[in-house]
Design a protein around this nucleic acid. Structure first.
Length: 230
DNA sequence: CGCCAGGGCCTCA
DNA sequence: TGAGGCCATGGC
């Protein structure tokens, strides 16, 4: 076993990389030295949700191109997404890959969103909303939790491939754990802290992208002292 | 050229 | 319930 607590790992990542200010929205608004995290308008909440679907198994770089296309076409709103033809929508989001599937997913997401007011969505019980999101075609556990955490500021820890890879290598996870088991580990040890969850997941992605890659760059890893990978 | 990227659905045991 | 195939683009 290693000596790291999840809180300790968070502190080390934060010290190394600094606050990430997730989820990125356009236009990015600077507050102090860093981008402030989180949506500040309902349209930005919607943009976060769209991004959460577009980034499924896809690099954020490609998602940005798709989002820019939607922005330029003034289509980044529930009203437009729901009214535009699927093949037109698919063409706009083409750079994000899987564009036919994702166009369909955006349609289903939007249909769901339009059943409620933004106030209703914000005020709804998180676990209840999570159940509803998971019933939507195209929304699985990670996308649901990304939406809950970053669009609606509800304390659900996001588990992605980076999280599994990093913490398996560290020896914190036993490989083969289910999504809910892993999420429960974080939420049990860290308690329910939306800000912490937002920043922590962003730092995990940063570390997974740049250091703890598929073939890891262990020599430059700030967590290597207690990592089982070595 | 091959590998990879902030998954999820469907099918089939 | 879990393993495998499928969806598809752009960066390197």
């Amino acid at each position: 076993m290693n000596d790291y607590s999840l809180k300790r790992i968070y502190q080390l990542l934060l010290k190394a990389y600094g606050p990430q200010g997730w989820w990125p929205v356009t236009p990015p608004k600077k507050i102090g030295p860093v981008y402030s995290g989180g949506p500040r308008s309902d349209l930005q909440r919607f943009e976060v949700m769209v991004g959460a679907i577009l980034t499924q198994n896809t690099s954020w770089n490609n998602v940005e191109k798709a989002l820019a296309n939607l922005q330029q076409a003034k289509m980044l709103s529930p009203a437009k997404i729901s009214s535009v033809r699927s093949d037109v929508l698919a063409k706009k989001i083409k750079p994000s890959g899987y564009f036919n599937q994702k166009a369909r997913k955006l349609k289903f997401l939007t249909k769901f969103i339009q059943q409620y007011s933004w106030r209703q969505l914000r005020d709804m019980d998180g676990s209840c909303l999570r159940e509803l999101l998971l019933k939507i075609w195209g929304i699985g556990p990670e996308t649901a939790d990304s939406i809950l955490l970053y669009a609606l500021n509800k304390p659900f820890f996001v588990i992605d491939t980076y999280t599994k890879r990093i913490f398996a290598r560290l020896g914190v996870f036993k490989p083969g754990g289910s999504y809910l088991e892993l999420q429960d580990m974080f939420q049990r040890e860290l308690f329910l802290d939306t800000q912490l969850y937002q920043e922590y997941h962003a730092l995990i992605v940063k570390h997974g992208k740049e250091v703890c890659k598929k073939t890891p760059l262990c020599s430059q890893c700030i967590l290597r002292k207690n990592c089982q990978q070595l």
